[in-house]
């Protein structure tokens, strides 16, 4: 069962939220190469979205090479390992940027951040 979250109050457009969710599913391994994505109609009903919004997300993923669309049979995950590394790095950078923003706003410096990350990682 894959998880796709769309926050209706987020200013991030819904199709970009779908793209983000699907990429996370791929990185986490819940979606694998060759898996079939939910049909546009079903995902639109589930998330209460315009079918065009879901189609736009799939279309964008296709143009980025993450999805292969086969006419009449749906949309399929298409990721090989090299593409995955780049994706992982760019999403991690995004998360780090957001985290650093919050950490610095607390008045923490880079050394505080480094210490905190290492201390907590060591306990997990």
């Amino acid at each position: 069962m894959i998880r796709i979250n769309v926050d209706l109050n987020s200013p991030l457009p819904a199709y970009q939220q779908i793209i983000q969710s699907l990429k996370i599913e791929v990185l986490s391994g819940r979606l694998k190469n060759g898996d079939r994505l939910p049909p546009i109609r079903e995902l639109a009903k589930l998330l209460k979205l315009n079918p065009n919004t879901v189609a736009k997300a799939y279309y964008t993923l296709e143009s980025e090479g993450f999805v292969e669309s086969r006419p009449g049979s749906g949309n399929w995950v298409n990721v090989r390992a090299p593409g995955l590394d780049g994706l992982k790095r760019s999403m991690l950078d995004g998360e780090t940027r957001a985290y650093l923003d919050r950490a610095f706003s607390l008045g923490a410096g880079l050394d505080d951040v480094r210490n905190s990350v290492e201390r907590i990682a060591a306990h997990e």
Binding site: R41, A44, K45, K48, N50
Partner: peptide, 13 residues
């Protein structure tokens, strides 16, 4: 409301 929206989305599709 949910049933209603689903029916409208189906019609759009």
């Amino acid at each position: 409301r949910e049933r209603f929206l689903e029916a409208v989305i189906e019609a759009m599709d």
